[in-house]
Nucleic acid binder design. Structure first.
Lengths: 209, 209
DNA sequence: CCATGATATGAAGAATTATTCAGTTTGAGG
DNA sequence: CCTCAAACTGAATAATTCTTCATATCATGG
């Protein structure tokens, strides 16, 4: 997935030599660390450069401004998330819908809770930077993957596919995120995950469709 | 519900005379308008004062800093939301759980979509200001109200009340918010609302509990 | 109608921070 | 080893914005 950021947010140039690649990586890493530690409002270009071990000028060679830097960091992050969801969807093609849903919940749950502070910090920065377009792009990709997966379900009866898929997607992504933001963990989180699976299965198995 | 903000975010003083009340109201209103129009990053104390028709100094008589102002605006807003959820919960005491859930979904859906831009703008400002404690407080209040309501359900079989309630709350609030953020509206939103009700009812009616 | 505390004013001060650019260093290919 | 473009440097600039405070006006109860 190639960066197709809006003109104003595009990187200035891509690194060509090896040391330049290392520089850009260091800048990304420093940015994430600072977002986690102090949040966007405390993140200054000088501090990013400092922590990355380069000078401000260097940062400005690759990113025309702070906004573009944050955008790039989040684009890379969400890209990787989307890839994982797509992989799960490919993997479960042709299985019963209930199992698909369970796998999807597990995958998404994992991506959120693996590095909770990074998840939180980056999400927050997206909101602050008004970059929700990145989240939409993520949703478009995952929606497509999930729709394709569910269409291939061995027990697919073909009725109301659009509505059912939309409902499942909205509920699963919404509930997992909400659970995450409520700080559920351990026993509680595990129970909720199970209950969510039960609920989705009950929805799929309902009679009065 | 009296303001019990952390020391650092408390208003400097409450208005005593009538004209002071009007001033504070104007400041609140101006703040919300600016948040909706330009977002927090463009909101300066000068602009708030300007739009409220007072001078900066006046604003600083009531709020020690910008942070406290935003905090107060959101506190007032979430307070009102919580009251509406609590009202619904009181109203449906003793009914069947399925109907309660439906009523809850309707109420929450309404509060979100009534003034979508205000909802979005204020939520965003909470995130940017790192005031998630306000959202927790909101959750604590609504959780308590919903727990009490469900405990009174005419068809309550008493099993796993804690887990069931937590699941329903997390799913409903999460899904409604996610639907809202995805920009669902019209037909699509209405269908999703119905499906969400169906899903929750299916969960409540499931056999293998 | 007067005294006093409440309320309002807004120019000035202090601090922070994004961004540039003229100049230096590095590395890869010939 | 030489050349040239790529990469890097960081002090200086320019702009923005929060917050204060000395001063002025208002409203209310005695």
């Amino acid at each position: 997935m190639i960066s197709s950021a809006p003109q104003a947010l595009k990187p200035r140039k891509r690194p060509q030599q090896r040391r330049a690649s290392a520089t850009v990586d260091a800048i990304f890493e420093a940015t994430i660390q600072l977002l986690v530690k102090d949040g966007l409002s405390q993140l200054t270009t000088t501090r990013v450069a400092e922590r990355a071990g380069v000078s401000v000028g260097t940062m400005y060679q690759y990113f025309p401004h702070k906004q573009a830097l944050i955008y790039a960091v989040n684009e890379r992050y969400l890209d990787r998330l989307a890839e994982r969801v797509e992989a799960t969807c490919r993997e479960w093609q042709g299985n019963p819908a209930g199992d698909m849903v369970e796998a999807l919940i597990d995958t998404y749950w994992h991506t959120k809770t693996e590095k909770p502070d990074v998840t939180r910090a980056l999400y927050r920065s997206v909101v602050e930077m008004d970059n929700e377009a990145l989240i939409s792009a993520f949703a478009v990709r995952t929606d497509a993957a999930i729709t394709a997966m569910l269409a291939s379900a061995s027990d697919n009866d073909g009725s109301d596919a659009r509505s059912n898929t939309r409902t499942l997607v909205t509920v699963i992504f919404g509930a997992v995120r909400n659970s995450f933001e409520r700080g559920h963990s351990g026993e509680v989180a595990e129970d909720l995950r199970r209950q969510l699976v039960i609920m989705c299965r009950a929805y799929l198995d309902r009679h009065g469709r």
